[in-house]
Nucleic acid binder design. Structure first.
Length: 110
DNA sequence: CAAGTGACAATAA
DNA sequence: TTTATTGCCACTT
């Protein structure tokens, strides 16, 4: 299979997501920008949807720009994701949203 | 080739 | 404040 540029974009997304430390979360738009394409925020989610490496890519650490969780989470629902994040030490708001102000990872990438 | 779709984000009402 | 719409850009039909 000839690798195309789009696959390179996907792979970069996976690399970024895998580098997210535990107890922190990142937004789709942030990941998109980090890979060099801030306009492809939607495709970041799509990349995780196709998730070629389940169990290796911490999709549960990727949330909306508002701190909200994905609607169609693949692990068993947004409830399961909240449990996973809580278990890692991520703070949550009373609205069931992640406290991006305290757990946003892309605050100091190498 | 054109239109439709989508794990997003920003803006309008 | 929440909900709706638009813009984005690649993939699917």
């Amino acid at each position: 299979m000839e690798p195309t540029a789009k696959e390179g974009f996907f792979e970069r997304v996976y690399q970024m997501v895998e580098q997210v430390p535990e107890g922190m979360v990142a937004t789709y738009g942030q990941i998109a920008k980090l890979v060099g394409e801030p306009r492809r925020a939607r495709y970041v989610g799509y990349a995780l949807h196709v998730n070629p490496r389940p169990g290796i890519i911490p999709c549960h650490r990727i949330v909306f720009a508002d701190g909200r969780l994905a609607p169609g989470f693949a692990f068993g629902g947004p409830e399961a994701q909240r449990e996973l994040l809580e278990a890692e030490g991520v703070s949550f708001l009373a609205d069931g949203r992640v406290d991006l102000s305290a757990n946003r990872w892309p605050a100091g990438i190498e």
